[in-house]
Amino acid sequence: MSNGEEAGKGISILIAEDEPNIVESLTFLLEREGYAVSAVGDGDTALRILQQAPPGMLILDVMLPGRNGFEILKAIRANGSLANLPVIILTAKGQEKDRKTALDLGANAFITKPFSNQDLVKQINRISANEE
């Protein structure tokens, strides 16, 4: 997983996920990679933070209380200043329909729960490397 180099290079990642234990593992894994990680439990708070201080990347769960992840993603892509923000959709609904919706709405990656830590970290490192 971590090969000694810091893939994250201090890039900030915002996690929008309402399961605190999943947030805890994600935070641990990504901080070890050198990312600066913060987390929120619902989409509207995520949107507010994104507008105030946009992070380098967003990990967005679909099943969020209030507006769901897809709605938040749509709002992000409609917002000029956030249109290029890398967004990784995280979902427990693995159906093809959700994957299609995510990609149609402009997600950069789609990760299905339960994920392997290694795959998740690889995906995120790949996207952050592409962004550089």
């Binding site: 399961e19 593992s25 729960k113």
Partner: peptide, 9 residues
């Protein structure tokens, strides 16, 4: 699925 995700990770 959420619990399994947390357990696996």
């Amino acid at each position: 699925l959420s619990h399994v995700t947390a357990i696996r990770s």
